[in-house]
Amino acid sequence: MNVRIVTLSIDGRDVGAREGQTILEVAGENGIEIPTMCNLTGLKPIGACRLCVVEVAGSRKLLSACTTGVTEGMQVTTDSERLRNYRRTILEFLFTEGNHTCAVCVSNGKCELQELARKLGMNHVDVPYRYPRRDVDATHPRFVLDHNRCILCTRCVRVCDEIEGAHTWDVMGRGIDSKVITDLHQPWGSSTSCTSCGKCVHVCPTGALFEKGHSVAEMAKRRQFLPYLSTMRGAKE
């Protein structure tokens, strides 16, 4: 296979990359960390959370690093006062949109949202909490879905579709009223498509999806299966 190499600069550093790679991948290979939430290696990037937005010289708009491919001579800025402000506000959006009570959450201390808040130095929230009334679906014999903690990253939707091939999960509604559903908005426990494989639970970045029988801070997510499975599927197709 013939791979073309492109050169570009990220935060003033000249780096080489293979054509077809995303800014996020190349930055990661060069030790430059860009915050992400919806992205997960092994699943198709969708550029939905917008936390990974970067400045690219010559582009009026900010671009999401997870979905933008590198090009020859590209000049990327991943960190600036402006970007930090945007990322923080987006993070505040995620916290205020649902009901995130870390103190009593199964994922406390093991949560990607919480960890990102720590990394980005979010010590208070400026936009008002929305306190939506949301349900808990505990009908599945092994797993629980707590909509209060869902940030709609759709990792569960993608892993179920792309890797497991069951496509049990989907998103219903629109805008601020969107929510993830199983089958055609049937209780998870009555889903006929769900294989109970648990992949959705383990890719979920927060405590929205968890295994039953776990108390506070006990739900560690295991993702080792994902790169392996996605490579295997990629080879087959």
Partner: peptide
């Protein structure tokens, strides 16, 4: 549509 966070929230 609710896909991206800034617009949805």
């Amino acid at each position: 549509c609710g896909k991206c966070v800034p617009c949805r929230v």
